[in-house]
Design a binder for these strands. Structure first.
Length: 650
DNA sequence: CGGACAAGCTGA
DNA sequence: CAGCTTGTCCGG
């Protein structure tokens, strides 16, 4: 999983004076321009006036041809080729990534078939930083004493040495492990996967990490960043929140943030933690499709500091990396941190019952309960048929089944065309919804419970949200006022507490045609579990399914994610999917040319090419070294080409 | 990327 | 053959 480019690094410079004639009167540095289309480095003279401010990582401006562009110094003391006339650096633009991060960017560019500049941009401050502040106290320090006993108590509680209440939940709604020494145990070796059930407050792990010194804590979302930061500060830890705290982190602090924080400089780095490592928010969707977990792992390895991956449902990638160092609380502690699960076995239900069988309706009508219904289908209907002639509604252009995003409009999910809701076979105007989406479910729910029900869908593209702002439409976080909400999985991100979370059609998740479907479904259920708290609370997770024996259902029911992990490990082995192998997805107009070259690689570096399917090819190798070497060795043809290493939606 | 320059097409 | 488009290469 780790590996280094086999090709010599782009940035390796021969030190001046190594073979005699170093020009002592001029200093030359190598600069990588901050331009997506340029991946070459150029050498420049350092003006006398810049003094000793030019180091590896420094942001500079350079004259490149007729224009000026930004860039990073990637090597100093360079011996330039003798035949080029050097120009001086045009300007200093402040501090940039540390030399370690420059090297890490080089590695990441190889690992995810991207350009170093895209990583260096992520590793750079978002505004000019000319000097660093003084470092913050590492770990638990005098500041804590100054704050008095309250924070001491918070720390003790976080460490699991708080007052030993029996299982009933503390007032703040978090669930406390009976024996929290597992958290300390996780940091005892260089690496560990720490499996903590959803209701446990993961901030305790960050506090433990910070006790070793300045830690790097990666969270999948802003909400967790807030929680973790608050708890760290309560415990007296000096925290810098990325990206605003870039300079403070570089100077020395425990750094907390989301994905991009994997690239934050941390002065005196002592430990790395990835919170909810299974969460796909840690992966960048746009190419290069880098994953914060993998960057964190590599960073910790290079810095020789402990790395702990935390998750209620560790990914196969994490488990494989952990090499058996999986730290788990006692069975009862783990079980207690998952909610009570009601499995609604729908195998014998009348299909006409729809999405709301009596068991659910009863919970829905209980006035004291806040209910979130999850249905991962947007719009009103995803499959429709004519009430008159029974014909399925399909696209006139490409024949795909059309959907009903809103009343009266049919839309093709394949080619994007829309048309009025009319049957093409008989001209009938009435279509019946065979598979309903959230909008329709909302209407039905309102009728069932007799009160307003809010619908929550993902906030769509930035353009449309701007549109909403302009038209002054309502707050996207609807559902604050209503007791019952229904939505896609976005509902689980936008609601912070619930008494019941009901998955109206879990089978859609369990049977999704993606190799990661089981893990993704479990991740979704873990997220739902967070809204509910542990078994001691009154939260219930209701799962409607025709697959009650599916390992994902059984895992949540017993609070035992190992049931999924084991089944999944076998399946990945059998199907040769990651992490047993390494995958990349190649698409775009230039993909065919690129793939043809890949196919022709000599035996020693051969990769397996599958496809095309829907204009996309899959490239498979026994490991990432072979895959990344092959991708790096294959020239990019002109034209648009997307290479997604470790695609999650295959 | 953006400019420079070379090679290819068109029209009188 | 000028005048314009399209493509390829290069920048220190």
């Amino acid at each position: 999983m780790t590996g280094r480019p086999s090709e010599p690094s782009l940035f390796e410079a021969e030190p001046a004076g190594s073979d005699g004639e170093a020009p002592l009167d001029r200093r030359v540095v190598r600069v990588l321009p901050d331009e997506p289309a340029i991946s070459k480095t150029f050498d420049y003279l350092v003006p006398e006036a810049f003094g000793d401010q030019v180091r590896v990582g420094t942001r500079v401006r350079i004259a490149l041809g007729p224009r000026r562009v930004g860039g990073w110094v990637v090597a100093t003391d360079v011996v330039a080729p003798p035949d080029v006339a050097l120009r001086p650096l045009a300007k200093l633009s402040g501090l940039g990534p540390t030399p370690e991060l420059i090297e890490l960017a080089d590695w990441a560019a190889w690992r995810w078939a991207g350009r170093p500049a895209s990583f260096l941009r992520t590793a750079s401050p978002d505004r000019v930083v000319d000097r660093l502040p003084s470092p913050l106290h590492p770990g638990l320090s005098d500041t804590r004493a100054a704050r008095g006993d309250r924070s001491r108590a918070a720390e003790a509680e976080a460490m699991g040495h708080g007052p030993r209440d029996p299982l009933p939940q503390p007032a703040d709604g978090t669930y406390r492990l009976g024996d929290a020494t597992v958290i300390r145990e996780a940091f005892a070796a260089e690496r560990a996967v720490l499996r903590l059930p959803p209701a446990v407050d993961v901030a305790a792990v960050a506090v433990q990490a910070a006790s070793l010194g300045h830690a790097l804590v990666l969270c999948p979302n802003q909400e967790l960043v807030g929680t973790v930061t608050r708890r760290l500060r309560q415990a007296g830890v000096g925290v810098a929140v990325h990206p605003g705290g870039w300079a403070q982190g570089a100077a020395g602090a425990t750094v907390v943030g989301t994905r991009a924080t994997a690239w934050a400089p941390v002065g005196g780095l002592a430990a790395v933690v990835v919170v909810d490592e299974h969460d796909e928010a840690h992966a960048q969707e746009r190419a290069p499709t880098w994953h914060a977990r993998e960057v964190a792992i590599e960073r910790a390895r290079r810095a020789e500091v402990p790395c702990v991956l935390v998750s209620p449902c560790p990914s196969q990638e994490a488990l494989r990396w952990g090499q058996g160092r999986l730290v788990v609380p006692s069975r009862s502690d783990e079980r207690g941190g998952w909610p009570i699960v009601d499995v609604v076995d729908r195998r014998r239900d009348d299909p006409r019952t729809g999405l709301f069988p009596p068991a659910l309706v009863k919970l829905l009508r209980d006035p004291g309960r806040r209910v979130v219904c999850v249905l991962n289908r947007t719009g009103r209907g995803r499959l429709l048929a004519c009430t008159a002639c029974g014909e399925l509604a399909r696209c006139e252009h490409c024949d795909a089944a059309v959907t009903l995003p809103e009343e009266g409009v049919l839309s093709c999910p394949r080619c994007g065309r829309t048309r009025p809701a009319v049957c093409l076979a008989c001209g009938g105007l009435r279509l019946k919804i065979l598979r309903q989406g959230v909008s329709r479910a909302r209407d039905e729910l309102e009728a069932l419970v007799g009160e307003a029900v809010a619908e929550i869908a993902a906030r769509t593209s930035p353009a449309s949200s701007k549109e909403k702002d302009r038209t002054g439409a309502e707050d996207p976080r609807r559902g604050r006022g209503t007791r019952v909400v229904v939505g896609t999985e976005a509902a689980l991100h936008q609601v912070d507490r619930a008494d019941v979370v009901a998955f109206l059609d879990l089978d859609q998740e369990l049977l999704a045609p993606r190799y990661r479907a089981s893990e993704q479904a479990l991740g979704l259920l873990a997220r739902a579990a967070r809204l509910l708290g542990g078994k001691a609370g009154r939260g219930r997770l209701l799962l409607q399914t025709r697959l009650p024996h599916h390992e994902v259902v059984q895992a949540v029911l017993h609070g035992d994610p190992a049931r999924v992990a084991q089944a999944e490990a076998d399946r990945r082995e059998l199907l040769r999917f990651p992490p047993v192998t390494a995958l990349a997805e190649v698409s775009g107009p230039a993909a065919d040319v690129f793939v043809a070259t890949l196919r022709a690689l000599p035996a020693g570096r051969a990769v397996e090419v599958l496809g095309p399917a829907d204009g996309r090819w899959l490239v498979r190798s026994p490991d990432h070294r072979i895959l990344s070497d092959a991708l790096a060795a294959t020239p990019r043809p002109p034209g648009r080409l997307r290479v997604a290493v470790d695609p999650l939606r295959v």
